[in-house]
Nucleic acid binder design. Structure first.
Length: 274
DNA sequence: ACGAGGTCCTGCGAGC
DNA sequence: TGCTCGCAGGACCTCG
């Protein structure tokens, strides 16, 4: 669930709370969120190490602990929170990872569905992981021409390509729907059939929406919480996502909701998006 | 190489 | 009221 703006919000909220803090010990309640590590290695790797940075890459929060990185992919329902003890019953039930800090608080990774994942990577592991991800849409150095060509190389539906983390990172289902509407592009069109101008327009609208969503502190549909535990504010700005059947804000045509593209909810205006 | 579809999980709301 | 069913913001895998 959390897409780029949500994770960016979490990271901005948590960085001042966590940087310089030492993790005293850690506990994991379920192994099924781990990738490439074991419960023992994770908890041992976190214990007695200091958090030196909290950053974002793609839709992942990256905690620099000791000489490693804890990569948190929140999946659909993951959240990172710093809480005082004792945890609320709700937090207690869904806190997959607890890390006791040296200021008496607990950093928790909260995840109801546990579709999220945790990785603990050394420098080499991180390099490899990072290299497999596409460019950051809000990077000032983003090579737009290269991205346009990369996108247009695919015959897949443009919506799927926009959500492909190897092509461009950070865009999930909500913002893909919103960006395609803003750019006036039918989500089902083959990416290869977009003109250069259309692809540029889509990238530009994607960037604009992501920036605005960060300002709005992300979109809360159900589970997403900021790093301070609050709901985001951007959901009220969605023009298509969650509005199937309602009139298009541009032309009044009823918005169509389908699941035909990659099995994900797609909402579009057949009149405005071609 | 591609697209379609299933899988991992739990909770919730709709409908019967 | 209580049950079952389908669906949910992501990512990964297998199959044909």
């Amino acid at each position: 669930m959390p897409e780029l703006p949500e994770v960016e919000t979490i990271v901005r909220d948590l960085a001042p709370e966590l940087i310089g803090r030492r993790i005293l010990r850690a506990r994991l309640s379920h192994d099924d969120v781990l990738r490439g590590t074991t419960r023992r290695r994770l908890t041992a790797g976190l214990a007695n190490s200091t958090i030196s940075a909290v950053t974002r890459r793609a839709k992942h929060a990256v905690l620099h602990v000791g000489n490693r990185r804890l990569v948190v992919q929140p999946g659909m329902t993951g959240a990172l929170l710093v809480q005082p003890e004792p945890l609320s019953p709700e937090d207690s039930k869904y806190a997959v990872l607890r890390a006791w800090l040296d200021d008496q608080r607990i950093l928790i990774y909260h995840d109801v569905r546990r579709l999220g994942t945790l990785l603990l990577l050394d420098d080499a592991g991180w390099q490899e992981y990072d290299a497999a991800l596409g460019p950051e849409p809000l990077d000032p150095e983003l090579d737009i021409d290269a991205l346009v060509e990369r996108m247009r190389r695919s015959n897949q539906a443009i919506k799927k390509v926009l959500m492909d983390q190897r092509v461009i990172v950070g865009v999930g289902n909500i913002y893909a729907n919103e960006a395609l509407f803003a750019a006036g592009i039918d989500p089902s069109r083959a990416a290869s059939r977009l003109s250069q101008l259309e692809a540029r327009g889509l990238i530009s609208e994607t960037q604009r929406i992501l920036r605005n969503a960060i300002i709005g502190r992300g979109s809360t549909i159900r589970d997403y919480r900021t790093g301070t535990g609050e709901a985001g504010g951007f959901q009220s700005s969605h023009l298509v996502y969650g509005r199937g059947g309602e009139p298009c804000v541009n032309c009044g045509t009823r918005l169509t909701e389908t699941h035909l593209i990659d099995g994900r909810t797609t909402v579009l205006c057949h009149n405005c998006q071609r």
